[in-house]
Simulated scan of single mutants.
Amino acid sequence: MPESYTQPGTSPSLFIRAAQRSDGESLGALTRDAWSPLHSVQPRPTPPYEPFFDERHEPSQYLVAETDGRVVGFVRLVPATSLACNRHVRQIQGLEVAEAARGRGVARALLRAAYDASRSQGATRITLRVLGHNTPARALYEAEGFAVEGLLPGEFLLEGEYVDDVLMGRSLIDS
């Protein structure tokens, strides 16, 4: 992925860049602090904490948002599958913003940087999955041009409630 991105209309102190292995501790702390059943199907993290980066989650898959030198968010961007016939599609597999930075355009800037990174990798489509009850995220994705392309009803049992898994996607051509 390119080293850094600037997004028009965002705070001048917001900087989006490629992740580095040294970001692992900050990103792990952000994920633990931001954990919520609104967006996570995993149990709440408890010590001892696993490393943020591992053989399946490499720094090259992440873009990091910084404000005033502090990590405030990330997006994970990967090929949708390993199939050659699907190489034109990228998938967002994680988008998190620190509570204190929400409502300031960080998630939108990360999404737009993900579009740019995807295009630079030759992608023409981007997809994601979001929990059906995550209304704020779904509204953001819809405002960014994503459309619901599939629904897995009651796919997850979270805190005693069945929650849908919503598949969304959008074109990266002419946008």
Rank of each mutant, 00 (worst) to 15 (best):
D68L: 14
S36L: 07
S60K: 12
D68Q: 10
T46L: 11
T46F: 14
S40A: 15
A34V: 10
E50V: 06
W35Q: 05
H39D: 12
P51D: 08
T31K: 07
T67F: 08
G28W: 02
R32C: 12
E25A: 15
T31L: 12
D54S: 08
F53I: 00
R70P: 02
D54K: 03
S26Y: 06
L38Q: 12
L30Q: 00
V41P: 02
P51S: 07
V41W: 06
E66W: 04
P43M: 13
Q61P: 05
W35G: 04
R56K: 14
V71D: 04
T31N: 06
P37M: 08
E66Y: 09
T67W: 08
F53P: 00
P51E: 01
A29F: 04
P37T: 13
W35C: 07
S60T: 13
Y49P: 06
A34G: 05
L63R: 01
S40G: 05
S40F: 11
P43R: 05
A65C: 12
L63T: 01
G69A: 09
E55P: 06
A29D: 13
W35S: 05
L38N: 04
V64K: 01
V41Q: 04
R70F: 05
P45V: 04
G69I: 07
Q61I: 05
G69L: 09
V41K: 03
P48C: 06
Y62H: 10
E50T: 15
T67G: 07
P43L: 07
L27K: 00
L30R: 00
Y49M: 10
S26E: 12
D68I: 03
D33K: 14
T31P: 00
T46I: 10
T31I: 03
P43A: 05
R70S: 08
T67Q: 11
P43C: 10
R56M: 15
D33N: 12
L30N: 01
A34C: 10
E25V: 11
G28C: 07
L27D: 00
S40E: 10
L27N: 03
S40Q: 11
D54N: 10
W35T: 03
L27F: 01
A34E: 01
S40C: 13
P48K: 11
